[in-house]
């Protein structure tokens, strides 16, 4: 059960570049900050700046409690003006942190095999999930975890160290500089037949193109798959209706659901790729 979100003032303990255009923020928060569920996110904002106005949604990469504080790790890709400014924050800077927000991944008790499928910085929430699986859950020993991580190049396989040694690991790069030469979905397709559909769960996060090809790949299988989506957000709490995704609602009806509040994690089969446009 998700704990109640709050608005907290965080202090940047470390801000480190981990790859071109990628950085890792370590933020110290009050102990009262609720423990995130893997797949949940936070909205962060620099309170000392009037601009940009809106906080930016970043999924949780790591969370621990130590020495009377909560420590939050965020692995970010520079995607625009907001994240570009975050990438230049110095240690000691303050950030407002709203969260944890959204609906995270859910793993049913009958799952024996978890496949983590990530594209680029989409590895972040899956690394957090793996951390929680490995270190927290008592029944995790009965579960196999295999990660399929893809990126443009070897150096863009961010967060790799959070997977190495903790699960079976396969990598794919577009340029062939590390692992499989091609995209992560193609690599997964080669292995998919080895997994028992009934007891396997895929958890994925990455660019929409990856999620869409994953949807096509899984369409004829019975493998369950949850995906964490990304969308521009204003409020992050379900009020503004800005971050919606088209969802199949049954009986041939479609509707828009909020990525921030109803997601960001959805069953892949729920996503409607070609929704009709309302007149």
């Amino acid at each position: 059960m998700a704990e109640k979100p709050s608005i907290a003032i965080g202090q940047v303990m470390e801000n480190r570049s981990v790859a071109p255009g990628h950085f890792l923020l370590t933020i110290r928060l009050p102990l009262s900050f609720a423990t995130p569920i893997p797949g949940q996110f936070v909205m962060i904002r620099d309170p000392d700046r009037d601009e940009p106005l809106l906080p930016r949604p970043i999924s949780v990469y790591g969370f621990q409690r130590e020495d009377g504080h909560a420590i939050l790790n965020l692995l970010c890709r520079v995607a625009g003006r907001g994240t570009s400014l975050f990438s230049r924050l110095n240690s000691g800077s303050t950030l407002t942190v709203l969260g944890p927000l959204g609906r995270g991944f859910t793993i049913d008790p009958d799952v024996r095999q978890i496949l983590l499928v990530a594209g680029g910085v989409g590895a972040a929430p899956l690394a957090f999930l793996l951390q929680e699986c490995v270190f927290s859950k008592p029944h995790s020993a009965k579960r196999q975890v295999t990660a399929y991580l893809g990126a443009g190049t070897a150096e863009l396989l961010t967060g790799l160290n959070r997977f190495e040694g903790f699960c079976n690991l396969r990598t794919a790069t577009d340029d062939g500089s590390c692992g499989y030469h091609g995209n992560v979905t193609e690599m997964l397709a080669l292995d998919l037949g080895e997994y028992d559909a009934k007891s396997t769960l895929i958890l994925a996060c990455g660019p929409m193109a990856m999620i869409r090809s994953l949807d096509l790949l899984l369409r004829d299988t019975r493998i369950r798959c949850q995906v964490s989506l990304e969308e521009r957000m204003a409020c992050g709490v379900g009020a503004c209706l800005g971050c919606v995704v088209a969802i199949k609602e049954g009986e041939g009806r479609n509707g828009y659901r909020r990525v921030c509040h109803d997601g960001p994690v959805f069953d892949i089969g729920e996503i409607h790729w070609n929704p009709p446009v309302e007149g």
Binding site: L53, M233, A234, C240, G242, V245, V277
Partner: peptide
């Protein structure tokens, strides 16, 4: 939030964009 007689799906995404000192929205009364 604005109420209509029947539920409304609203506009397709993207619906929002931050601009300098402001934001644009086209939610379409979902």
């Amino acid at each position: 939030k604005g109420l209509s007689l029947e539920p409304r799906a609203g506009n397709p995404p993207p619906r929002i964009m931050e601009t300098r000192c402001g934001m644009l929205n086209a939610v379409g009364l979902q």
